[in-house]
């Protein structure tokens, strides 16, 4: 159970996708990274819609692609389902025909098709919309039809190409929980490609963070959030304060960095970066390890963010909305957890 792809040259850039990751059946994986990191190339390569220049793709012990033997299984023979970002429902088919299409291709008997389509439309709660055309459905309904169409072929792997990004917040949450429910019920392997880290955190069992066509880190959401191994991952997954020995806008060394490094007793060089999550800093009027001033107050409703200036560093601090510090006032703060990241790793 591995998937390995190397190097896909596109017109714009040369991607170096070096990834070998094992997955277990029924796992919900998320592949995240900023736009242009090679996600879609990877996704399309796995589905067989694009041909990588080099490498091989193996899904559940079945070779799908190999550049050395120029072996390539066409997408229709890969048994991989894909839910597209824009759903890609065929406008000239009614909902029933859209969902039934994969079975029709596989020459399943009509009676069975009817029964199965009904079953899967019930699963996504759209049994009553069978005769509608896609354009007569709402965005959420279209998305569920696309999901039903993907699931009906009982695929080895279900790929999701940011299908939730076109929905409004409320609908998205509803769809997310439904998706997880179905995934667990069918014991389906899902690979969710997205640039939205918060969604990935909520859904995935494991996250693969990509950047510049390479894997930056693989781990559970908690591992990745708590122990990022690179400054990219630290800043891409959630908000963080990255404290480097030398930052771009400060000529001299960051004073806070030196203080933290000595207190933590670490061997700091120029490549060392410290990551401090905003919620790991606590503010107090009376006591604390460091003393700074509140530079800005950003009220968020459930939380309040403060921009705290300490010597030649500014830190983002998140605290609950009950705290009430005024702009310009001095404040004490303590740092609860520091993650040491080494750039280039």
């Amino acid at each position: 159970m591995k998937l390995k792809i190397a190097q896909k040259n596109t017109m714009k850039m040369s991607l170096l996708i070096q990834l070998v990751f094992p997955y277990t059946r029924g796992e919900f994986l998320a592949i995240i990274g900023p736009s242009g990191c090679g996600k879609s190339t990877l996704l399309r390569s796995i589905a067989g819609l694009e041909t990588p220049n080099e490498g091989e793709i193996v899904i559940e012990d079945n070779l799908m692609f190999s550049s050395t033997t120029s072996y390539n299984v066409p997408p229709e023979k890969r048994d991989i389902a894909l839910v597209f970002q824009d759903y890609a429902l065929w406008p000239h088919f009614i909902v029933f025909d859209n969902v039934a299409y994969p079975l029709k291709i596989r020459k399943v008997p009509k009676k069975e098709i009817k029964q199965k389509v009904h079953q899967f439309l019930c699963l996504v709660e759209l049994a009553d919309k069978e005769q509608r055309y896609p354009h007569e459905l709402s965005g959420g309904e279209q998305q569920r039809v696309a999901l039903a169409r993907a699931l009906i072929m009982s695929p080895k792997v279900l790929l999701l190409d940011e299908p939730l990004s076109n929905l409004d917040a409320k609908l998205r949450e509803q769809m997310q929980s439904e998706l997880v429910k179905i995934q667990k019920a069918l014991n389906l392997t899902v690979v969710h490609f997205t640039h939205d880290q918060s969604k990935a955190m909520e859904l995935a069992d494991r996250i693969i963070v990509m950047n510049h066509g390479e894997i930056s880190q693989v781990g559970t959401p908690k591992e990745i959030y708590k122990n990022p191994t690179s400054s990219f991952v630290a800043s891409f997954i959630g908000k963080t304060n990255l404290i480097a020995k030398k930052s771009k806008n400060i000529k001299t060394t960051t004073l806070l960095f030196d203080e933290l490094a000595t207190s933590m007793n670490i061997d700091a060089n120029d490549n060392t970066v410290l990551s401090v999550r905003p919620e790991d800093i606590s503010l107090s009027l009376k006591y604390g390890e460091y003393k700074g001033t509140i530079a800005r107050v950003i009220y968020h409703g459930n939380t309040t963010q403060y921009l705290v200036k300490y010597k030649n560093t500014e830190l983002i601090v998140q605290s609950n909305s009950n705290t009430n510090f005024n702009q310009g006032s001095s404040v004490y703060f303590s740092i609860g957890k520091i993650v040491v990241v080494i750039v280039g790793r």
Partner: peptide
């Protein structure tokens, strides 16, 4: 939309079948 074609391909239709359907 090119994804309409891709959708048919991953759902099991060959190139020619996709063109037809």
């Amino acid at each position: 939309d090119p994804s309409l074609d891709s959708a048919a391909r991953v759902n099991g239709a060959s190139r020619l079948r996709t063109f037809r359907d």
